[in-house]
Write a protein that binds this DNA or RNA. Sequence first.
RNA 1: GGGCGAGUGGCGGAAUGGCAGACGCGGUGGACUCAAAAUCCACUUAUCGUGAGAUAGUGGGGGUUCAAGUCCCCCCUCGCCUACCA
Length: 828
Amino acid sequence: MQEKYNFSEIEHKWQEKWLAENIDRADTSSAKPKFYALAMFPYPSGNLHMGHVRNYSIVDVIARYKRMQGFEVLHPIGWDAFGLPAENAAIKNQTPPVDWTWRNIANMRRQLQEIGISYDWEREIATCHPEYYRWTQWLFLEFYKHGLVYKKKAAVNWCPSCATVLANEQVVDGVCERCETTVTKKDLEQWFFKITDYADILLEDLDKLPGWPEKVKSMQRNWIGRSEGVEASFPLEGQAENLTVYTTRFDTIYGVSYVVLAPEHPLVRELVKGTEYEQDVLAFTEKMKGLNEITRTSTEIEKEGLFIGKYCLNPMSGERVPIWIANYVLLEYGTGAVMGVPAHDDRDFEFALKYGLAITPVIQDPACPPEKKEQPLAAAYIDEGIMINSREFDGLPNEEAMEGMADEAERRGVGQRKVNFRLRDWLISRQRYWGAPIPMIYCPKCGTVPVPADQLPVLLPTDVIFKSGVNPITTSESFVKTRCPLCDGEAERETDTMDTFMCSSWYYLRYTDPRNQEAPFSETAVDHWMNVDQYVGGVEHAILHLLYSRFITKGLRDFGYLKVDEPFENLLTQGMVCMDGSKMSKSKGNVVSPEEIIERFGADTARLFILFAAPPERDLEWSEQGVEGCYRFLNRVWRLAVQYRQLVQTGAAQERLFKDLDNPAKEMRRQTHLSIQRVTTDIGLRFNFNTAISAIMELVNALYLYKEQPGFTLEVTQEAMETIILLLAPFAPHMAEELWSELGYSGSVHTRPWPQAAQEALIQDEKTIILQVNGKVRDRIQVPAAISNQDLEAKVIALGKIPEWTQGKAIVKVVIVPGKLVNLVVKG
RNA sequence: GGGCGAGUGGCGGAAUGGCAGACGCGGUGGACUCAAAAUCCACUUAUCGUGAGAUAGUGGGGGUUCAAGUCCCCCCUCGCCUACCA
């Protein structure tokens, strides 16, 4: 055994051995209970960053710990390999995306192997591999077959720079998430997944996920945005048609003083046609179109609107109501038309004030003093109250009136209760090359025809030209020109590819059976491994990826391919890796490369630091000195092993008897088992790896001191050393493995059972009791652990410094917390 | 505007309602050394005190409790998400 900790040599040696033997292979037919540990798979950008290292280290600790606990662990890795950067790189360097991507994967695979994550490499997948995207296409067809995929012309978010459509989720502050170009609107025929059919169940089933952070669930709830309201029909004056509005405050219907439409609302053109208002209205609409998403939807911008010269009738009161258009009404939500109730809505209030529209209160604020009741409102009153100015509903609490009014509207056929969602259907078309082609064919005779499943995959063509602003796939004649599967006539292929969120919405299923050539996965494999027991990734995927994955899982369940309702049983969202207070990123120039750290300190140190510096959910502040501290700690463990080598080796495999231990030995042994207990709960129950590591550090510190004791006990020392190595195995797998073999143990430390805390070792003969007077700590005493409360009380009152504090005062109460504390409450 | 977090030493961070600051970093002192580095040991919230110790102390203010960093109410600051959703 070398005197010095040579991490580089050790790490490479074991990495090669583990890989050659694939010791982390997951066996589907194993009799052990299964555990599926999963990190969100990476985009192969070319290099691993610290965020990856953190993510994978967290999951690796869990995976290794579970293996030692006797579970058969599935811990796979793969590549979310389709996407824009490959294509941009292709344009820039004139290399095909496929080459760029595979080169990046090769490099990142090597980097992953250098941090010693315990993956089953035989299950590695890449979404850009035809054997993978073949099944992504199959998935598309399955959803199509079940009526959950459709094509429609839609005003879509268009990024002029990427020349593609973006999902709402990919537009951030009105600019493209990827290239930060301002997004515009464009009318295009697009493929959609009908996720809205699943809106209710996606919302409801969030309650089935106690293992998810509340934060993520609430983000999904808000995104789905379920609301209950009424769709009311306002008859248009002098026309047969109705104007439909959606409202969640039908109780305020008698307070309507105007109705307002989104400028793009199709009725607007019709209503103003040939009137004196036409020109102004069209000009206003054009102006709105010209504004980008941010300005348009910003609450900061002043409300602006225009009367369009027409009226409709309030379906409840029959009152004549002017029709307006305004910038604050969104076409996409509800019916694109809103009833304006200035007295009880902040936005309507602001609008009415500006344009001098009537403000009629219909709900009385109970807190409003009587003398103010007749005065004009200073602000909209949006809370509960008693109805006024609402005919037969006057005097009722507004919640009650809401029900009555809705009943009446339904009876009279002028309104209908309606549940509305903010969630839109999922637009999956992308006018890009580097993605899974949508398996559809357009035949002049037969129309839109799906590619038969046995003809999959629809391969990406290679005879394409890459240039900015054009979908390269359309430049491949061999791809576009095809034959109709039905009539064999000349036909054309769909040239759009799928949103990469499609590829990542089912990869966790493919891992269960990654080499299956007949199906995306076999029933046996998927039923055996699903659900994912622990999923770990960044909170940035809280909405999109996780919602789409839940949707796809529910669809496949409904089609009969799966049994599970939800894909991810437990979710952990890890914090960012920061430096100097802000997220490590290339643009900020505050990045530390994992490779550099591994070269200088080794993978075990890098892993240990990243797990020790903060609990996993929280942001982590990178600290060079912190890294050195962890390196020092591992060296300290190494030196301990070097010193004890001879001693431990002689007893490595033997049964140990702990008889006639002296006090220091008992204390050392207690420390050992206490550490086992703490590390076990910290990893298994709390995911607090930072405190788990500090518990191991304490054990190491205790052993350093114990060895200085005259006549220390061999068995106790052996047990402590062995425990340190076992507890360290999930965190610093290379060092643990090396020490395990150097100290004469056989086999891999990673296949050893996790140590168990022996209860008898934790028992103390004596305990320290805290003595308080009126809640303040005044003294502490050593007492036999088995002391009775009476004896303890008597002892406390008489002994130590306590009489000093109770002198001349009456003890009114004695609180005893057994084994811990005595509090005397005194008076006078 | 709304939602969710978080405020604890010089720093990262610990504390099932029961000794605030574990562990690590940094700092101080000592040992080893010709010397330095490394290592090992000890100390390290502030104020007062030679000392034993005392007092204060977890963003601010109230409250519940024998006992509050922890539970309840109000307020302040910071971070993230979301945003005219009718």
